[in-house]
Write a protein that binds this DNA or RNA. Structure first.
Lengths: 216, 216
DNA sequence: GGCGAAATATGCGCACACGCAAGTTTGGAG
DNA sequence: CTCCAAACTTGCGTGTGCGCATATTTCGCC
C-alpha cells in the first residue's frame, strides 16, 4: 500500500491514539473538562472504554496529550539540530524555549482549558517527564564518549527545571483571574524557562568541557 | 497536658497517620503487598476506609511512607546543620547520602518488600519529590539573598538526580537476582548517589559564588 | 464553663484504572 | 493459500480515589 515501512499495525495504533487525543480535547473544550467521561471519549474515537486505558492511564492524560504529544522527541530533535559549535547549555535552552513557545494553532485555547482544572494542570506538569529520556539520548550524543549516566542526570535536571517553570507559570496564570481576560500578561513563559534553566548552565558546561571521568 | 505546643488536633492527626503507615507496612510484610486491601489497613488503624484516603491518596503511599516519612525534613535539617564554611554542593551531597544510607532498623526488609512490587517501586520513586520543597528552603537559607527561584530549581534538580539514582538502584536490584547478567559498576547506593549528584556540583557552586542577580 | 466556628471523620455514590481471560486481527512462514 | 503465533481489542469483575453531604470533634473566645 501507500505505507512504505512494514507496519500496518503500528499505523493503526498511532491512528487510534491520535483519535483518542483529538476526541478527548474536542469534548473537553465543548462541554468543559468535568462533563466528559472516558466512555464518551472512547465512543467518540470508536473504541471500547477498556481500550482507552490501554493507551492512556488516566482520563486527563489524553486531553493533555493533545497538546504535549511528541514534545519529547521534538525537544530531542531540536537539540540534535543545533550546530556542533554552540554550547550545550545554549542548545538545550533554545530547544526547550522553542518547543514550549510554539504551541501551534490548536494549543491556545487548549492551554486555557488546562489552566481551568487542577487535575489537568497536574497532568500537564507530569507530562514534562516525557522529555527526560529523549533529551538524555540527545545530550548523550552531544557529549560523545562520556558516561551516559551523566547525560541522564542532566536531562532529568533540565526536565525538573522546566517542571518548576511551568508550575510557576500555571500558578500565576491561575492567580490572575482578575478581569477574566484570557490573556495572561504576567511573566512570559520564555522568560520563566530561561530563568529556570540558567542555574543549570554551569553543570551543562562542565559536562561538555570535561568529557572524561567525573572526579576522584 | 504533657504536650507543649498548642495542638491536640495536630497530635491526633500525626498519630493516625503513623498508625496507618505502620499498619500498612506490617500487613504488607506479613501477607505480601497484593493481599492487603485499604479496608484492612483502615480497620487495623481503627479508622474508616474513607479516612484512609484523607491521609494517603493511594494504597502504596502508606506502605512507602513507613520508610520515607520525614525524609524531606531530615534532608533539609541535615543541610542546615552543615558548618557554614563547607561548600553547598558538599553539604547537600553528604546530607543526601546520610539520609539514604541510614534506613534504620525497620527499613531493611521493608526495602526488600518494595523491590518486589512494581507499584511499590514507583510509589517509592515518587516519594523522592517530597524532598524538593524542604530542600529548596534549606538551600535558599544558605544562599542568603539570592533569588528563591534559583534555590527552587536547584532543589528540584537534586531531587531529580536522586530519583535517577534510586531508579537505577532499584532496577539493578531487581535484575541482579536473575543470573546477574549485566552488572554495572557502582553497585552501592551511596556510590550511585554520589555519581548522580556529581554533575550538579558546578551548578551548586556557581549559585553559591555568585549571590547576586542571575545575569544580563 | 459554655458556645459558635472551623476542622475533621464518616457514609454514600460514582467513575475510574487495571488484571484477567476470552475473542479478534495482523504478520509471516511453509 | 493456509495456518499459526504474536499483538491487539474487548467484556467482566474488583478494588480504588475522591466529591459531596452529614455527623462529630476541637479550638478560640467571652
Amino acid at each position: 500500500m501507500t505505507t512504505r515501512r512494514a507496519g500496518l499495525r503500528e499505523r493503526k495504533k498511532q491512528a487510534t491514539r491520535e483519535a483518542l487525543r483529538e476526541a478527548a480535547l474536542r469534548l473537553a473544550l465543548e462541554r468543559g473538562p468535568d462533563n466528559v467521561r472516558v466512555d464518551d471519549i472512547a465512543e467518540a474515537a470508536g473504541v471500547s472504554p477498556r481500550t482507552y486505558n490501554n493507551y492512556f492511564s488516566s482520563r486527563e492524560e489524553a486531553i493533555v496529550a493533545a497538546v504535549t504529544a511528541e514534545r519529547g522527541s521534538r525537544v530531542a530533535a531540536a537539540v540534535a539540530a543545533r550546530p556542533a559549535d554552540v554550547r550545550l547549555a545554549d542548545g538545550v535552552l533554545d530547544a526547550i524555549v522553542e518547543q514550549y513557545t510554539a504551541p501551534g494553532e490548536p494549543g491556545r485555547d487548549a492551554l486555557l482549558l488546562i489552566t481551568t482544572s487542577p487535575a489537568l494542570r497536574n497532568a500537564f506538569l507530569d507530562a514534562t517527564a516525557a522529555i527526560e529520556h529523549p533529551l538524555a539520548d540527545a545530550i548523550d550524543d552531544r557529549l560523545g564518549g562520556t558516561d551516559p549516566f551523566t547525560a541522564r542526570v542532566l536531562a532529568a535536571s533540565v526536565a525538573a527545571a522546566v517542571h518548576v517553570a511551568l508550575e510557576r507559570w500555571l500558578q500565576q496564570a491561575a492567580t490572575s483571574p482578575a478581569g477574566g481576560g484570557l490573556v495572561v500578561p504576567a511573566g512570559s513563559l520564555p522568560d520563566l524557562l530561561r530563568t529556570a534553566l540558567a542555574p543549570l548552565t554551569p553543570a551543562l558546561d562542565a559536562a561538555e568541557v570535561r568529557p572524561r571521568r567525573a572526579e576522584h
